[in-house]
Structure formats: C-alpha cells, structure tokens
Design a protein around this nucleic acid. Structure first.
Lengths: 205, 205
DNA sequence: CTGTAGGGCTAGGGTTAC
DNA sequence: TGTAACCCTAGCCCTACA
C-alpha cells in the first residue's frame, strides 16, 4: 500500500521549534497558520506538528545536545526569532499577562486558551480565602469578588461555574447547598501527581 | 496545564443514557439537574453531557479537524474559470520563498496560509487531464509535467505528494498502484469560503 | 442571562510504513 | 524489531443562535 511517509526536513524541524518558542506548546494550529512558519510548515497539519513535537522531545530530551550538532552556520541576515532550545520554563504559579507580544491587533487578547485555567483557579481560591465565609460562598459572590479586581472575559461567568464544578470534582473544593468551600488547605497548587511527567510547560499568557 | 481531562466512567455513561431515555435528547440541563442522575453527573455540565452524547452515538459524526479546511460544499455551481489560471499559466508566482530565511516578519501579509493550496490542486488536475493516461499518472510524471511549465518551490515534490494524498483522502482522486486518476470532475474548490482573516490594521501612529 | 447545536482544537493511544 | 510518521477519537472550549 502506498502511503508515502514524508520525513521531516531540518528546516521544518527548526520552524517547528521556533514556532513553539513563539507561540508555546500546544498552539499547533497557530504555529501552522503563522505566516512566519507557514513557509516551511504549509505541507504539515497541526496534528503533524503535534506528533512531530512529541517525538522530537522524546529523543533529544532536555538540553545538552552537544554530540551531533547540526552546523547551523546559516547566518540569517535578520532573524529576530531565536530558535534554540526548548522554552522549558519553570512552573510559575500565577503571573499576570506579561511578555506581551507586540503588534497584536488592537483588541486586548484576553482570549482564554485554556491556559488561563490555573489563573482562574487561583482567583477562586483567593476569593474564598478572603471572603472566608464559614458556610462558603456562592457563585455570585465569587464572581463578584473576582470581577471587581481582575480583568476577566465577558463570558467569565460561564468559565467560573465550569471551573467551580471541576474543582469540586477534583475535591479541591466542597459544595454545600449552593456554596463552595475550600476543602484542602494545601493551596490549589496543582500537586502535580506527575509520576515522572516531563512537562514542557509553555510560557504563559 | 492544571486541567486534567476527566474520562467518563461507566456509571456516568449509563446515567446519561438513562437521562436521555427519560427526558429526551437535547434536554441536557434537565438531565443534569434531575436528582436521579445528578448523583452521577454532578461533576458534568450540560455541555459535557451534550458532547459526550455526541460521541457516544455519532461515531460517524466526523470531526477531528485537521489541516486545511473542509469545504462546506457550497451548492452554487461554479464555472471552471473561477480557478486561478491553469493552462499555460503566464505568471503564477508560486511562492518560492520556501527556502528563504525565517522571520521575515511583517513583510508579506498575504500569508501563504493555504491560499495556494487550491492552485496546487489545480495544477494536479491539469496535469492529469492533459496526460490523460487511462491508468493514471504517477507522482513523478505529475511532478515532471508541472515542473516543466510552472515555477514551483524547491520542495515542491514534497508538497505534491502531500496534496495527492489529501486529494485521495478526499476522494477527489483515486489511487491505483502508484498512479493517480481523477475520480470525479466536480469542482474541487477546497478553500475556505471566508478565511476570517484577522484585521491587519496598519496602525501607524 | 440561560441553554443548545455545531465547529474546532488538542492530548494521547493506536496503527502503519519503513 | 524499533521507530518516525500518521490516524482516530474522547474531551472540551468557543461561537452562534434561540
């Protein structure tokens, strides 16, 4: 059966690396769409990118690939983008949006990519800890607390109840009547039960 | 990411099934609220129920978006002339930038995105129609045909086989042995009707 | 604002070609 | 046999719409 496999070229690999450095892990479609990388990756799908990244990190894990370095002596005339090692950022609990990518269109990009999830969780815990109602706080109260001191997307209410539900399911929170309480005081700090998870954590946003 | 997926358990599935039997499909919120099922579904949202139901039954409901668009098959008839020039295309400057250095940020906003995918498809169809080999033509023949009369990127061979594969998958082409044949001569307008391009406002203050 | 339908994307396991 | 490349599907999120 003919199903010609297309081996990845070096250029494609580097474009992918650069794309991950710029957009973060998991933003495969964005990377593929980015005109900067689309020149190299236009024949690959977002899924392909993901798959390739998977077995790129599997092989050359971590750093120190000093053995067979491909001479990257190609002096780019102007390459503002660095396409070096992995953006292996340490786990930063909560950080406000920073590292703003310049030149985004006017709209403030509060878009929730799911990457804000930990941030929302943090807000929720903060709200509960501050309100410290012995009976817990209901959705409206939490919403109110957060909305007053954080910039949140329009549909934050939905996100919030989704988050709350999930946290209850994860037994981080407890629900009594219509109110939520913190169950474990060990902070939400996703205890990361990672057995040996090799986490290539993207930056943040 | 602080958001591990939550696989559906057997109990949850059954509760959902029972809920649909009782309330009917589409009544997700009712099912979720029903105390009879809420015991099992409390950690799921109505949306979750809907989504789960979708892939419990659907199976055939294709999704898993991959790569380029899936044309919505606009029923409107189209003249073959809508296609970007085919025969003896005078100047179809296929972006041969493929070997240029990365990070030409902001230079072209024409974004190769996938805009030339239809053009490549057109080339392929033209080649097959001209060669009109009853057994079909193989990759090399197609490549040769196109390369001789169009400017193509350096790595066009890769692109070509990618396109061929895709077209076979889309049942626009048929593959026998190593040769490709046109399956149906309908329109192969495989491009997004509305690219939904981001506003590239040239903000210059 | 509350809900639903449908599109779109990703993670991860499975499969295939080499 | 091992592995890179590719496929399939569950789980969500997002937007549109009523």
């Amino acid at each position: 059966m003919g199903n010609p496999k297309q081996k990845w070229t070096q250029e494609e690999e580097e474009a992918l690396r650069a794309g991950v450095a710029k957009h973060g892990t998991g933003k495969w479609k964005d990377i593929q769409r980015d005109p900067e990388f689309n020149k190299f990756l236009f024949s690959r799908s977002n899924i392909d990118l993901k798959d390739k990244w998977r077995n790129m990190i599997g092989g050359a894990s971590g750093q120190g690939q000093r053995d067979k370095s491909r001479a990257k002596a190609k002096a780019s005339s102007d390459a503002p983008s660095t396409l070096p090692s992995l953006p292996n950022a340490p786990n930063v609990p909560v950080s406000d949006e920073a590292t703003a990518e310049p030149a985004t269109d006017g709209a403030q990009r509060i878009a929730d990519d799911g990457k804000n999830t930990p941030r929302y969780n943090a807000m929720i815990f903060e709200a509960l800890q501050t309100l410290k109602d012995p009976n817990g706080s209901d959705t409206a109260a939490i919403f109110n607390y957060i909305e007053k001191r954080q910039e949140v997307p329009q549909n934050f209410r939905r996100l919030l109840s989704s988050r709350l539900r999930r946290l209850v399911a994860q037994e981080k929170l407890e629900k009594v009547q219509n109110c939520f309480k913190i169950k474990e005081i060990a902070s939400f700090e996703t205890k990361t039960p990672a057995p040996k998870e090799q986490d290539v954590r993207p930056k943040q946003l």
